[in-house]
Amino acid sequence: MKQIKDYLQTQALKLNHDEIAVARAATQTVLAQGRAHIDNAIVQHDGLPEHISNQIDTLKQLFMALDSIYSRQKEIQTATIYAQPENGNLIRVAQIGVPIETELSTHEDSAWQYLAARTAHSGWANIADNVEKWLQIDELRGEHNCRAVSQTSLPICGEDGIVYGVLHIESKVALSENALADWVGLALGVLPVLREWCPRERGEA
């Protein structure tokens, strides 16, 4: 529970610890034991670094973990796990629903255009319950953001604060607390995989 408590405190989120723990455990079970007949083309793309692209079983398990929540939350349009290798850009490693960007720069200009890039850049969760309003007040820019009513970007990070990736969700409505708890559990559950894929030098933040 300490991992959950630390994450919620750092990200200033008030959610049910038990619901997050259940979602995290379910994600970990899928990553450890999940098996499914998924076409390789669904989980691989040309932009993946070779050392990730070769991990086909784990890529399929990430897809299955996403699907386990996506299939229960009918208002979700798309859910994406981005990894952040050493080059700094976000690379899509799992995605379900409406296709979105495969790679995102995390420089400051991109952070205004893409919520996932902002989360990677800052290390903070970004929850835009009303994207239209965020666009109106210039907290988010770009017509591509009009594709969803709500966007949520959660950092995939550990106690050290290092961001190894981002979980990005776009939906037709603002996420409820219960729905958000499921996604936080998934973000915490996939952390070991992304930490292995995107190692950092000791002391790097």
Rank of each mutant, 00 (worst) to 15 (best):
K2L: 12
Q9V: 08
A12H: 15
K14R: 13
N16D: 15
N16V: 07
H17W: 06
V22E: 14
V22G: 01
A23G: 03
T29Y: 06
V30Y: 06
V30T: 12
Q33N: 11
H37C: 05
I38C: 07
D39C: 10
V43D: 02
Q44A: 06
L48A: 03
L48C: 03
S53M: 13
D57E: 15
Q61P: 00
D67C: 01
R72A: 14
Q73G: 00
Q73T: 15
Q77F: 12
T80R: 06
Y82C: 06
Q84M: 14
P85C: 04
E86K: 11
G88K: 05
V93Q: 04
V93N: 06
Q95L: 09
V98R: 15
I100E: 15
I100V: 10
E101L: 08
L104S: 04
E108C: 05
A111G: 05
Q113F: 09
A116F: 00
A117R: 05
A120T: 04
H121K: 09
S122Y: 03
G123E: 06
A128D: 11
D129M: 06
D129Q: 11
K133S: 09
Q136L: 08
E139H: 14
R141P: 01
V149P: 00
Q151E: 09
Q151P: 00
S153L: 02
L154I: 15
I156M: 07
D160M: 09
D160I: 08
G165K: 04
G165Q: 06
V166L: 03
H168D: 15
I169E: 07
E170P: 00
K172C: 07
A174P: 10
S176K: 05
N178H: 13
V193M: 03
L194C: 02
C198D: 01
C198G: 00
